[in-house]
């Protein structure tokens, strides 16, 4: 049986190509970039896949706040001639044990849909948000990330630290209340945090923490570790030549971002096939 990944595109996504390529490098047997209209026309079905990618971009221009209008679309859009809600297909996909990775705008979408943090497998209630960077500006820069090895996240297994680009104007992670933050910590759902160049302590200092995220949170997963969202772009570092200092440093051929996708492929092969 084949391991299958789907990358959803349309309405302003713009990282679908490299995300699909990352899935291929990670070892998925079949990778399809699927326009959301193909899901709404019932031509493609989420259930046929194991790994759902929500790529970065500017869904609906982030006009109502990042990913907000698209969260609304996914919640209300109906699959043609069936009366079924697209969102129900998302929930079924999760129930069947599939993996979801949201990067940047995809992470914002997952949080605003309520897929993350998804306490107690309740995937429809928003408990946190991603909002405007403290700097008030969009920025493209690379960040140092420390991975929480106690986290259940299946995507980061075996990774201690990773260096990746962020490219966003709304990446500041904010929680509904202290209780949510506590729970995130106690369930080890905080997968990655911004640090200084030594990858040690989580930091609130700009520009290492590029957006002012609470507790330097850069990525979170649900309690199962199968739903994962992150602001940095793993698909932005697939080859050493993506590294900002590749002409100065000796680096392995493969970019560090591939490991996230390889973990996903490995999990699918071992658990879902």
């Amino acid at each position: 049986m084949k391991t299958k990944a789907i990358v959803i595109s349309g309405n302003g996504t713009n990282c679908e190509m490299e995300m699909a390529y990352a899935c291929e490098l990670g070892g998925f047997d079949q990778v399809d970039i699927v326009h959301i209209s193909e899901l709404l026309y019932g031509e493609k079905k989420l259930n046929d896949y194991h790994f759902l990618n929500l790529p970065g971009g500017f869904l609906d221009g982030d006009d109502l706040g990042s990913a907000k209008a698209n969260a609304n679309r996914i919640k209300h859009a109906v699959i043609n001639n069936t009366g079924e809600l697209l969102f129900d297909h998302f929930l079924q996909f999760i129930q069947q044990g599939g993996l979801i990775l949201g990067v940047c705008n995809g992470f914002q979408l997952m949080v605003k849909l309520g897929l993350l943090p998804g306490f107690d497998q309740e995937y429809t209630v928003q408990r946190a948000t991603l909002t405007f960077n403290d700097s008030g500006r969009f920025e493209d820069r690379w960040v140092y990330l420390k991975i929480n090895e106690a986290s259940p996240c299946v995507f980061t297994r075996g990774i201690e630290k990773i260096y990746l680009p962020v490219r966003h104007g709304e990446g500041k992670f904010v929680v509904e209340n202290e209780g949510v933050l506590k729970k995130l910590h106690s369930h080890a759902q905080i997968v990655m945090r911004y640090t200084r160049t030594d990858y040690k302590e989580a930091t609130g200092d700009y520009p290492f923490n590029p957006n002012g995220s609470v507790d330097a949170i850069a990525g979170v997963c649900d309690e199962s570790g199968r739903m994962f969202g992150m602001m940095p772009h793993p698909e932005g570092y697939l080859h050493y030549s993506n590294h900002p200092r590749w002409t100065r440093e000796r680096l392995p051929e493969e970019g560090a971002g591939v490991s996230i996708f390889r973990n996903a492929a490995r999990y699918v092969r071992h658990t879902l096939l």
Partner: peptide
């Protein structure tokens, strides 16, 4: 420069800002 996404599409090789401190 930082306010422009210069890396989307995943093919960035020589960026507008380079060097030890980028």
């Amino acid at each position: 420069i930082r306010q422009y996404d210069h890396e989307v599409q995943g093919g960035s090789v020589v960026k507008p800002l380079v060097g030890v401190c980028d």
